[in-house]
Write a protein that binds this DNA or RNA. Sequence first.
DNA 1: AGATGTGAATGAGTTCACAGCT
DNA 2: AGCTGTGAACTCATTCACATCT
Lengths: 225, 225
Amino acid sequence: MAPQNMAPQNMAPQNMAESVATSPATLNRLSVYLRSLQTLLREGVKRISSQELADRFQLSPAQIRKDLARFGEFGVRGVGYDVADLAARLTALLGLDRRQRLLIVGVGNLGSALGRYLGFNDESFQVVAGVDSAPQLIGKRISGVPIEPYDDLQGVVERSGAEIAVLTVPAEAAQEAYGRLVDAGIRAILNFAPVSIVERPGVRLKNVDLRIHLEELTFFLAARG
Amino acid sequence: MAPQNMAPQNMAPQNMAESVATSPATLNRLSVYLRSLQTLLREGVKRISSQELADRFQLSPAQIRKDLARFGEFGVRGVGYDVADLAARLTALLGLDRRQRLLIVGVGNLGSALGRYLGFNDESFQVVAGVDSAPQLIGKRISGVPIEPYDDLQGVVERSGAEIAVLTVPAEAAQEAYGRLVDAGIRAILNFAPVSIVERPGVRLKNVDLRIHLEELTFFLAARG
DNA sequence: AGATGTGAATGAGTTCACAGCT
DNA sequence: AGCTGTGAACTCATTCACATCT
């Protein structure tokens, strides 16, 4: 009946600028490299080779070089990488050189804990607003900002200037909240609701399913006896 | 010179029983399939084909079949899968047919929120204990169980029978807590501390780095302008 | 000499397409 | 006729090994 599935899916992710197509795994490693470099910086290390970096932080030297090479030439042949310089360039590459404004959607236990955890004492992330549909939460505070009504999501996004939403609503509410956020002009969403969201173009979505991570562990416990 | 790298690395992961070598990605998909089936069960759907399942939940039919085939024959050719049967078999395969006992290590904002989130109203997971090194927290409760002193970790693990630890301590404390948990006989650890833990054999470790997930989003915001 | 950056080789994971069973 | 289970083809990712530069 149906004229077969012709969905173009996620082709052509309107990659602008030099935005090379990059896998999540690669990006995640860049974050790991940056964090490692920050540790080295605190220790006063000035220069490091991919080999040393790998030894020190359980990484692969070839992969470090390949990952970095994708975005430019960051090192000096025969010498290695300047720790401060590479850290600064990765910081910029990952967009962490300016403060990102977070909106917490669904300020229950998990939402408020994540807000505090991600925004607390952090240069790169700042919780600028929280919304919830429970009337008794309205007016209370999360990370110093007042909780506002979910119904006014659009207005909250506009007034706060939030660009990233942390979605911590119940599973049943996630798809509708997603749509509202996209409509409101949010540009990226970190979703903790355990559902597969039907996506709309133009907005980055990253799913973090905590239960699935736990289930990865129980599989091995079950397998062993 | 060197007689080449002969490290056996992670061969032969003492895979007992039928425990086939399985990637995290595959396991995570099994969790997704199970959750999808549970939704169908609630809707009263009795039978489903890989094609329908894929259409409904944004999955790949070929991948569903391949993933399942790795663990046995779950369907009937020409017919499809029995929803209840497949759900039951995946539940067993993932070790979710018995209740898993969780220990929260580090009962700050994130730890207590995760404890509630993962253990609340859940058949498969139950928070059986919490430990923290802050004296003022001792004796308080998390998800109905009292918070005990971190120093008595060994005793808490033994008395509670916890098999899985949720590690939500500060980054600096994570490696030492990991060691203590392994010594205490914990069999799996879900780590939220943003450090790369040096692992010891015999214990499953899964890292969940929330900041890294956020940074995956900011990369794209930065790349677009 | 020493370490990067990179094409080539290998390995892992996904999709295709069809044989085989109901 | 229909849908699973699966080898083969293909795509994506990692590792190797070396030419290249300081």
